[in-house]
Amino acid sequence: MNERKKSLKLNLTDILVTIVIALVFGLVFRLMGPVYDLVQPLGLHLDALLYGIWFIAAPFAALLIQKPGVAFLAETAAALAEMLFAGSGGVINLYYGVAQGLLSEGIFAAWRYKRFSLGVASLSAFAAMVASIAIDAVYSYLPLLAGWNLTLYLVFRVLGAILLSGLLPFVLVKSLEKTGVTQSLRPVTKEDYDVLK
């Protein structure tokens, strides 16, 4: 049991892999920023559909490395990278990133880092979305939007989050598993020991 606990601690490889992935997503966020900005003017919240991509770093890293802390680290580092690349929104990104990372991490923690299924990934994306809505409610005066408009906003945001940050990272990690690159990243499980018997 002690062995298992020890293997769940982050080592340098995990940290570096997480940060590199976060940087890749930070670049993606930076490049998506102008696209997101330009679909906003209609006021019909088409941008909320795209918003989901900003939650992807945490579930992706967690699914990939399957250790505590990586989800939070990935989302925060991605937000910091976006800020350093002068992404639109600037300092706002950092606060959103930290909040999203925390709630995302919370979902994986709730399953004690033992379940990394599509459902948990989607829930984690949903949790990140809740964090973003909570800040938005204060920041963008959400309650003061017309009712139908607010509903549209919420529906699009949920759809975007589940598709782009629940399903997409799950599919990506599944395909990465086929390349074999994930094998050396994950903690050793009981099945791995059983093979040796």
Partner: peptide, 10 residues
């Protein structure tokens, strides 16, 4: 642009 929703439908 980002404020358009609030302006049009607030």
């Amino acid at each position: 642009f980002s404020a358009s929703a609030m302006i049009l439908f607030g």
